[in-house]
Nucleic acid binder design. Structure first.
Length: 467
RNA sequence: GGCGACAUGGCCGAGUGGCUAGGCAAGGGUCUGCAAAACCCUGUACCCGGGUUCGAAUCCCGGUGUCGCCUCCA
C-alpha cells in the first residue's frame, strides 16, 4: 500500500511481506479532561489503518499510550482538590468510553507514562553519556544542536526556530532550543527518584521510551495528530535516534484536525464539541462514518448538518443488511473487494472505499429486486463494514421495556420480554391490517416510532429495527 | 514574518491530462392500504487571470481566499 509519510512529505510504498510483524505507535491523549470530537477522529483514522492491515494479513502490534502526568493534570488536580492519579483515571475512563462507542478496537498495549519512568531514565542516561543531553540544576535538557537531523520531520531549520524559542524562568538551558527531558519537582508535585533529582519526565521522552520498550528501537509506523508534528514528534525522533543510533519510525502519519465553524477544535481554547455528548446525540457509528467520509489528512468541519447527513447515509447501509438477514454463504464479489482494497491501499482513501461500499449496496439491492441471490454482495458488504468498523449497532431493547409494555397494554399485548412484546405488537398490527383497520395498525406503528422503533412491511413480512 | 496544506455541483466529499466517484438533500416515476425501504430517471461542477496542449477541473506561472504549525494540543 501507499502511505503519505510526513518524514519526507512523500507517498511511500509500504509493502512488508504478508504475515510480518508491523509495529504501530499512536500518540494517545493527555488525560486531563474529557475527549472532544477531534480525539475521536484520530482514534478512528488509525483504527481503520489497523483493521485494514489486519485484514490484509499483517501481524499488527498496536500501541497507544496514555500521558498521565503533565502540567495540566497537575493544575487540574490543584483546582479540583483531587489527586493527580484520580484526575487522570477519570479522564482516561472517559476517553475509553468514547473510543468504545466509536467502535475503536482496544490497543494491544496501552502504556501509561507514570508506569514507565525507569525506561525513560534509562534513555535519558544514554543521551547524557553520548553527549546529547546535560543535567542543569536538577533538570536534564536535550542538546538540540548535537543532533544533525533536527527539523527533518517538520521541515524547519534550527535558525528559523530560534526566533520562537524561549527560556522559561528558572530554566538553565545552554541554548534556547533545548528542551526538557527531566524536570525537578516543585513542592507538592508528583515525582520519581532519578540520578538528577526527584522529578518527572518531560513530555516528549515518554513516547520515545515506551515505543522503544514495546516495539523496539526501530518500527514501522508512528502516528498522531498533525498538531504534534512540531515539536513533539520532532523531539521524539531526536531523542530516540540520538540514544539508539538507529532510525526510529519508518513512516510518520498525521491526521488532520477537526474544525468548528472553520477553526480548529482545541481543548486549550475550549473551542470543542464534547465527544461523549456527540455520541449520545447521534448514533456513535454515524459519528464514525462522519470521520471516514473525509480523507484523514484533510481538515474536516464539524457541523450538526454533517452529522445528520452521516446518520442518513448510515441508515442506507443498514437498510441493505436488514433485507439480507443471516451470514453470507458465498464468496464476496472479487471486483468490489479489489476496488475497495485499492482505495484503502492508496493512503487510506476511506471516502473512495465508501463509494465502493455504497456501490455494493446498490448492486445488492438490484439483485434483490431482480429476485437474484445477493450473497456475493452481502459477503462483500460484511467484509468492508468490518474493515471500516461500522458494524456495531444497538438493537437491545431493555431500556425500552416499560415504554413498550405501555403501548402493549393499549393493544392487548401481555407484558413480557421486550422482544416478545414487540413481536406480539407486530402480530396485532398485521391482524388489524388484514381486517383493514388502518387506524389501529397505524397507531401501533406510530406509537413504536415514538420510541425510535421503526416497522417496515415487506414481501417477507414486517420487520422492526431500532434507530 | 517563516514553513505547510487546501479551494469541486444546493450541502458534504473522492478523483484526475480526454472514458460524467459516492453520500445527503430536491423533483419525477415504479412498488405499496398508507408509510418505510428499494429500484429507475433528472443536476454535466471543479476560486480568479494567464500559459502549455489537439484537448485541463486535472500540468506551469501569477493572483485571491480559507486553514494549520512555529507555545500545550488528536
Amino acid at each position: 500500500m501507499k502511505l503519505f509519510n510526513t518524514l519526507g512529505r512523500t507517498l511511500t510504498d509500504f509493502d512488508p511481506p504478508i504475515g510480518s510483524p508491523v509495529g504501530i505507535y499512536v500518540c494517545g491523549p493527555t488525560v486531563q479532561t474529557k475527549p472532544h470530537v477531534g480525539h475521536g477522529r484520530a482514534a478512528v483514522a488509525f483504527d481503520v489503518l489497523r483493521r485494514y492491515l489486519l485484514w490484509r494479513g499483517f501481524d499488527v502490534t498496536y500501541v497507544q499510550n496514555i500521558t498521565d502526568v503533565d502540567d495540566k493534570i497537575i493544575n487540574a488536580s490543584i483546582e479540583q482538590g483531587v489527586p493527580t492519579d484520580e484526575v487522570a483515571a477519570a479522564a482516561a475512563a472517559a476517553f475509553r468510553q468514547g473510543y468504545e462507542a466509536l467502535g475503536v478496537m482496544a490497543p494491544d498495549l496501552e502504556p501509561k507514562a507514570t508506569e514507565h519512568v525507569p525506561a525513560m531514565i534509562t534513555m535519558i542516561d544514554q543521551l547524557i553519556t553520548k553527549g546529547h543531553a546535560y543535567e542543569s540544576g536538577g533538570d536534564v535538557y536535550f542538546r538540540v544542536r548535537s543532533f544533525p537531523g533536527y527539523g527533518k520531520l517538520s521541515g524547519r531549520n534550527i535558525d528559523e526556530l530560534l526566533s520562537g524559542a524561549r527560556i522559561e524562568p528558572g530554566e538553565l538551558k545552554e541554548d534556547p532550543l533545548d528542551f526538557a527531558l527531566w524536570k525537578s519537582a516543585k513542592p507538592g508535585e508528583p515525582s520519581w527518584p532519578s540520578p538528577w533529582s526527584d522529578g518527572r519526565p518531560g513530555w516528549h521522552i515518554e513516547c520515545s521510551a515506551m515505543a522503544r520498550e514495546y516495539l523496539g528501537d526501530s518500527f514501522a509506523i508512528h502516528a498522531g495528530g498533525t498538531d504534534l508534528v512540531f515539536p513533539h514528534h520532532e523531539n521524539e525522533i531526536a531523542q530516540a535516534e540520538a540514544a539508539t543510533g538507529t532510525r526510529f519510525a519508518q513512516i510518520w502519519l498525521h491526521n488532520g484536525m477537526v474544525n468548528l465553524s472553520g477553526e480548529k477544535m482545541a481543548k486549550s481554547t475550549g473551542h470543542v464539541i464534547d465527544l461523549l455528548g456527540a455520541v449520545k446525540r447521534w448514533d456513535p457509528i454515524a459519528v464514525r462514518l462522519f470521520y471516514l467520509r473525509t480523507h484523514y489528512r484533510k481538515p474536516v468541519d464539524f457541523s450538526e448538518e454533517a452529522l445528520d447527513d452521516a446518520e442518513a447515509s448510515l441508515e442506507r447501509l443498514r437498510a441493505f443488511r436488514r433485507r439480507t438477514p443471516g451470514e453470507a454463504t458465498v464468496p464476496a464479489a472479487p471486483d468490489l473487494i479489489e476496488r475497495f482494497s485499492e482505495a484503502l491501499g492508496d493512503d487510506l482513501d476511506a471516502a473512495g472505499g465508501l463509494a465502493v461500499l455504497f456501490d455494493t449496496v446498490r448492486d445488492g439491492n438490484r439483485a434483490l429486486d431482480a429476485g437474484e441471490d445477493p450473497g456475493r454482495y452481502v459477503a462483500a458488504y460484511d467484509e468492508m463494514m468490518d474493515v471500516f468498523g461500522l458494524v456495531a449497532h444497538n438493537d437491545n431493547l431493555d431500556d425500552l421495556r416499560a415504554d413498550i409494555a405501555e403501548i402493549g397494554t393499549r393493544f392487548g399485548v401481555t407484558t413480557g420480554e421486550p422482544v416478545a412484546m414487540l413481536d406480539a405488537l407486530v402480530r396485532a398490527r398485521n391482524e388489524a391490517r388484514d381486517s383493514h383497520e388502518w387506524a389501529t395498525s397505524d397507531a401501533i406503528r406510530d406509537g413504536l416510532a415514538q420510541l425510535d422503533i421503526t416497522l417496515e412491511d415487506t414481501a417477507d413480512g414486517t420487520r422492526w429495527y431500532r434507530g
